[in-house]
Design a protein around this nucleic acid. Sequence first.
DNA 1: TTGAAAGCGCTAACAG
DNA 2: CTGTTAGCGCTTTCAA
Lengths: 339, 339
Amino acid sequence: MARVGIREVASLADVSLGTVSHYLNHPDRVSEEKARRIADAIEQLGFVRNNAGRQLRLGQSSTIAYIVPDVSNPFFATIAEGVEQRATEAGLAVFIANSSRDRAREDAYLELFEEHGVRGMLVASPRPIEDRLAGARSRGTPSVLVGQRSSSPAQPSVSIDDVSGGYLAAKHLIEGGCRRLAFIGGPLAIRQVGDRLQGASNAVREAPGVTLEVIDVADRIIAEGHAVAEGLVARSAGQRPDGVFAVNDLLAIGIAQTLVTSGVRVPDDIALVGYDDIEYAENALVPISSVRPPHEDFGVAAVDLLLAVVSGDPPAETQVVFTPELRVRASSRRETQPA
Amino acid sequence: MARVGIREVASLADVSLGTVSHYLNHPDRVSEEKARRIADAIEQLGFVRNNAGRQLRLGQSSTIAYIVPDVSNPFFATIAEGVEQRATEAGLAVFIANSSRDRAREDAYLELFEEHGVRGMLVASPRPIEDRLAGARSRGTPSVLVGQRSSSPAQPSVSIDDVSGGYLAAKHLIEGGCRRLAFIGGPLAIRQVGDRLQGASNAVREAPGVTLEVIDVADRIIAEGHAVAEGLVARSAGQRPDGVFAVNDLLAIGIAQTLVTSGVRVPDDIALVGYDDIEYAENALVPISSVRPPHEDFGVAAVDLLLAVVSGDPPAETQVVFTPELRVRASSRRETQPA
DNA sequence: TTGAAAGCGCTAACAG
DNA sequence: CTGTTAGCGCTTTCAA
């Protein structure tokens, strides 16, 4: 089945190849008569424009990339909706790539999108990746770092203030009467994780007598939450923390699940706060208190920023930082304050 | 910033353009000496292969597309993991596109991927879309329908047996003592929805005296579950169903949430079963019983099927159908069976 | 309004 | 092992 091209269309419609191209790109500049013949030929032949040829000639595509570490994390999925919507408005298509939290795969997609000449990339990554993005930028593919504040204004980013988010969470636990806090998350080298811990630590420092334990985990997913909580349950009651701040909701959901089914009361025995406020946090076994970034605005802001940069008109502030709020729910709402 | 091409690399490395291409595509056929010079030049210039040129010349890409109606539905995200993994093993990259349950957008992406000359497409769609896919196939882009059984063997598909899934769910509710079932889902014209209802209806027909109410909804998301459940709560207790089968877990999660917070006991007053068995069903406010497709195998099977078709070696059975199981959890587990 | 022609960057066939 | 060369399909001057 020989792929049909513009040439076949032209010959069937009995016009020149150039006219078909005109029809495709400037329909108004083609006579009605020929336009109809061309349309018929396209229909009849099932012609589909070859993007490779088009893009080679044009020198640019009308696509942006959105690279996420984990599509099954609803936090990124929610953002994707905003991205999709705004990009569509701007006449851009979005290709989403899933790096599966794998560095090699992430690199491969970065490279692939560069080769594809996308207009720009939105990149969510748990890793330090600015050098890599700086490279891409120098070669003509700009990007916006999503969910992680960039360290230089040269690299646009859209993020939330994780230090204040962490502070909010820990402060709330302390005010609820918790004295032995545990921070569950990791690896600590991840910027978002480190910042949230820093914020929690700040709150603890302000509260004499309150301690902060750190429980490091490799993946921030529900299954890890189960595992960590099992460890907690295995301790004697006196050794357990009375307030847990999980670095994201996936962990928190897993933790809540295991604690509750093991007979540990939440929030009475252990109060729990998560982060991201994904839709499922509210609907979890125990509705989970969570630090909420403005999901609705996140994707939109990222695309807007990218578009501005692409159009060579970078805004004064390339590092957009949203301030998170705390949504208090049953997992940390104590009726009676312990002494 | 003039985009650097193979030509610049060649001239800096002081070799011919063809040698650079050889280096890129058959590194073994280039002398070590020149290979190093070329590598240096690439490094120094920050050369990135232009995919448009490459693909134009090769006539094919090494990418497959995965089009989903809703990235934020964990059902598709879970499948995506299997897809990604298998595709990577086969040396293929996966571009995910989110149609946002919008027909126009879905069409646009289908068209876009055809233009891009992807090797093949995995398409999950709530709509009848086989004609569209047949068109793409005839033009050289094969596809696998995901989550919906195709009506012709000419169109490969990977799906689960929704009729038996629906039967399983309703049968279980009836055996738990439910007499007034409600099926919540829609639009009924959607194949998956219709089949699940059919299965439920089959089970009801076998049980004299049991009734089946249908509550039609437009979107199968958590928020809709909230809305529907509010309607249920507003009814007098005698008018409410005592068993609810939600066409997917998102709806079920929303329903459970609203029922419980409104004081309706689940499963005692209303037993509830969902569908898809997404991770959050198990962790929901009331752990939700759910009909479970084999997530792990789904994406893998879809890619394998696509690869087989692409390679012109279609297997005997192009319509893969998995049989679902029922996972019983608290939302439908009744201690005492009513008379 | 239409057509002819040049060339985007790359690969592979071929000749050396 | 290396270089030369002919397009892949398309868009867009430019001239008619």
